[in-house]
Amino acid sequence: MAAGGDHGSPDSYRSPLASRYASPEMCFVFSDRYKFRTWRQLWLWLAEAEQTLGLPITDEQIQEMKSNLENIDFKMAAEEEKRLRHDVMAHVHTFGHCCPKAAGIIHLGATSCYVGDNTDLIILRNALDLLLPKLARVISRLADFAKERASLPTLGFTHFQPAQLTTVGKRCCLWIQDLCMDLQNLKRVRDDLRFRGVKGTTGTQASFLQLFEGDDHKVEQLDKMVTEKAGFKRAFIITGQTYTRKVDIEVLSVLASLGASVHKICTDIRLLANLKEMEEPFEKQQIGSSAMPYKRNPMRSERCCSLARHLMTLVMDPLQTASVQWFERTLDDSANRRICLAEAFLTADTILNTLQNISEGLVVYPKVIERRIRQELPFMATENIIMAMVKAGGSRQDCHEKIRVLSQQAASVVKQEGGDNDLIERIQVDAYFSPIHSQLDHLLDPSSFTGRASQQVQRFLEEEVYPLLKPYESVMKVKAELCL
């Protein structure tokens, strides 16, 4: 049975990233139509530049190519590739079939990587351009969430054990800070992308030097003109047959890092959902379990974690691919890159769409948070109580021993009897502590235990987050809708 299948058929496997999760716009960027249309555009740009620099290419040939950029006979191309065992030459023939007058000058002087690699770089750039505003929107939604809850005390956790208090907004800023680093890295790697350009079979530009009869300047002009037509500021000066596969490492490393950030955020949300302090959106008709109707599973956060793990592992592909590119190139890269580049971007696209949807509907339960604080705060307040007693004339050592005994009794009630923490009640009825009984409410005010959390939130948002989001103001209103 021949390899390949009808990918629109229910009898043929289709990647869930495309069929179930990723956005239509990201799927289109990695589609065959987008790819092969870009090949034709690159052939047109090459012909236009070659004509401008004096090669015998007519206006009629150029116009014929322009008129057929979208006229792609995919069936013919597939048949040609089956016959020739070469995808680029299959599309040269297919393009030439609908451009008979231009057929002889299509791909003039070029090698397969002229269309293959340059198209990949265009796709990487455009895919990054799709991700950047999506990530900015996630940051914006979380920034709104953090600002609104900047002063809401909550129990902090280290080692997932109760620690000092923080605020809900401050905790959210930990998430935002990681995503801001990801946004900066995505922008950097996007701006650092260079075009492969017009380089020939081993990167020496020998074929173009021959076409222009040894004119170095025209060869350099050709490279520059096509690079500018493709919208790049610069091209690699040095290439082998391909652009260095280190570029793929750079791009997928940034995406993998984004995956790590999203995994951490969504894990926190899942843990908070278990504590009943916070939940992701839950639709009115949504079913959490087929057997347990009360369940409210954090399905979206779980999906993000599941896909983020996949995204983090994909960076190993370009690392290994770059390491086995012998001399000017081997074909070890080809099949692998067809999979890992598309999957990385479709996965990143999915987790950003999902995280935006989550961040637009996060639900906080202040009463649950308050109750958990009441359970733990008495123990945390013991040092403040000791200091207040010393100020009232008591002995630190005597007070410490009193607190120690009462704390152990209260802990026994919590752990052995399943009761509430009654340390404060014990202190309130103990005559030894009568000098500070009137101060206990103040000493137990949760806001006095959150330090500068709310001020940190305000400063972080104003100095770091809002300036970073400013270039994306025009796209901030787009909502994230999930079908599944």
Rank of each mutant, 00 (worst) to 15 (best):
G197S: 11
K82I: 15
A308K: 03
T58I: 08
Q286V: 03
F195G: 06
R33L: 12
S434E: 11
K218V: 00
I424M: 14
L444Q: 11
I265V: 10
E283G: 13
M312A: 05
R171V: 02
R296E: 01
T158M: 00
Q61H: 10
V92Q: 00
C305M: 05
P153K: 00
A163N: 04
E481D: 13
I237D: 05
P293K: 04
L183K: 07
A308I: 06
A344V: 02
C399A: 14
H217G: 11
D73L: 05
V168S: 05
A127V: 05
C340G: 08
N357C: 13
C99Y: 01
S140T: 15
R309C: 13
L179D: 05
I139V: 12
D268F: 05
P16T: 15
D398G: 13
V414T: 04
L84V: 03
S301G: 12
C113Q: 11
G418V: 05
K170P: 01
T119Q: 05
L255F: 13
I123E: 06
D117V: 00
M389G: 06
A308E: 03
E64V: 11
N421Q: 03
V368L: 05
T94V: 14
F74V: 14
F95Y: 11
P298Q: 02
C173I: 03
N336W: 02
A273V: 05
N336C: 10
E360S: 09
G197F: 00
F157I: 03
I351R: 04
A392G: 10
A77I: 15
R404W: 09
F212Q: 04
Q456S: 08
M292R: 02
G96E: 09
G109T: 01
T239M: 02
E228W: 15
I436S: 06
Y466T: 14
I139F: 06
D6N: 14
E277D: 02
I265L: 15
L84S: 05
V262L: 09
T52H: 13
Q325R: 02
L362N: 00
P366C: 08
S151H: 09
L443G: 04
L44D: 03
S412T: 14
T450C: 10
C113M: 05
D87F: 01
Q221T: 10
V457G: 06
A322W: 14
A322G: 09
L271V: 09
I176R: 02
S434I: 12
T202D: 06
Q63V: 10
A381P: 09
E148I: 11
T94A: 14
H217M: 12
I62A: 03
I373W: 05
R309G: 03
G418P: 03
L272F: 06
G96Y: 03
S306P: 03
Q61R: 04
R40C: 00
Y13W: 14
V315D: 03
R371S: 02
